[in-house]
């Protein structure tokens, strides 16, 4: 049973946000309006956080692409009263939209604040409905959503591999953000497979995880040289 995880190399990230747009395109994430954006209601399963240190002219900046951490010990799953969010056997923290009652307890208990709520019924201009991905549902108003590691791509990849009578191999299944990253700063794979690239990178000296001290055991690792300053 694989344990899917992601490794993001901050030394390679140029903050271009291709991952952000790829995610929005892949997952039918509605765009906001200026008014909603002012209320910070932009839904962005993947977002790039800028972290700036120092003062003019001695500055350092890092860009932290932040998908769902798919924690092995997910605080959001614990508190869900109806089991709409749960961790499956492959370690994916899933959100079942038809089960969600919209209490937003999970959003509040996520220390990474990366779960999003549908404040309104998502809408697109008629023309833009054409580009919606038919593999991914449109979330209704009032439910919580978040990065799924594009697990619909896993379903398809697995199906393809099986149809071709072979095992799923590394690179068959990658989320949309990983697929597009121009600098190949995002890696994806099975953390339990000791030979996989992600497992090797996650064990490397540059690896760290966000808010590791909380014991959430995130499956998203970051790589950076030097000391990490959150």
């Amino acid at each position: 049973m694989p344990r899917w995880g992601m490794v993001i190399d901050l030394d390679k990230c140029t903050g271009c946000q291709a991952c952000v747009i790829a995610c929005k395109a892949e997952n039918n994430i509605p765009f906001s309006s200026p008014k909603e954006a002012r209320l910070k209601r932009i839904i962005s399963w993947m977002s790039v956080l800028p972290v700036m240190e120092g003062e003019y002219p001695d500055l350092r900046e890092r860009f932290i692409p932040r998908p769902c951490m798919h924690c092995d010990n997910p605080p959001c799953v614990k508190v869900c009263p109806v089991g709409a969010t749960y961790k499956n056997r492959e370690g994916l923290v899933a959100q079942v939209y038809t089960q969600c009652i919209g209490c937003r307890y999970c959003t509040n208990n996520c220390p990474y604040t990366l779960k999003y709520f549908n404040w309104y019924t998502p809408e697109w201009p008629k023309e833009m409905e054409n580009y919606l991905n038919p593999d991914v549902p449109i979330r209704s108003k009032g439910v919580v959503e978040k990065c799924t590691f594009c697990h619909h791509r896993l379903q398809k990849a697995r199906e393809k591999a099986r149809a071709e009578n072979r095992r799923l191999k590394e690179g068959d299944y990658v989320p949309a953000c990983v697929q597009t990253c121009p600098t190949e700063a995002i890696y994806f794979g099975d953390l339990d497979d000791p030979h996989s690239l992600v497992a090797k990178l996650a064990r490397g000296p540059r690896a760290f995880r966000l808010l590791e001290e909380l014991g959430t055991e995130p499956k998203v690792y970051y790589l950076t040289e030097g000391e990490w300053h959150g």
Partner: peptide
């Protein structure tokens, strides 16, 4: 406060 009170 529920997003979907119909499902409570």
């Amino acid at each position: 406060d529920l997003g979907r009170p119909g499902r409570m």
